[in-house]
Amino acid sequence: MSAVAVIYGITSALTVACGIGVLLARRPLIAGFLLTAAMIGLGFLFWELHSPMLAGIQILVYGGGVLVMVLFVVMLTPSGQSLPSISWPWRAVWLLVPLSGYLAARTYPAHAPQISGRQLGQWLLMRQGLPLEVLGVLLLLALAAVLAIAQAQSEEGRS
């Protein structure tokens, strides 16, 4: 077992542990921070799987964008109350941490092909032009829909 495989196993175990932390957290804010840690861990896993570009996108979009939004919603909604305590059988999920770490280290794909940013950019712009445009339109529509929902909310609050 190589050193990279061991690091991959440890990262995998830590990511799964952060996911379990979200499951067992008693406060939504703590769950949000643990989700951020899990997404950053997943970014490191992508990097260890020879995809630095996808790792960067994963950390930027999930760790930097979506999670900041989630934390804002935690602050703006009445979600501060503690969640009920969990029963003992739920704690058995901690067994998944060493199990997933061991399995990840044992099955690490050392010879996986590298997905560089240059390859991805060329493939997207030269061969996937239409889907890329569709994605852009989807994001624009999502932005318009969110603005419409927020607008309706402010009018509802005023009336």
Partner: peptide, 11 residues
């Protein structure tokens, strides 16, 4: 890679 990129954006 394109599938994952699209999945991240849709999510």
């Amino acid at each position: 890679a394109v599938f994952i990129l699209f999945s991240i954006v849709v999510a």
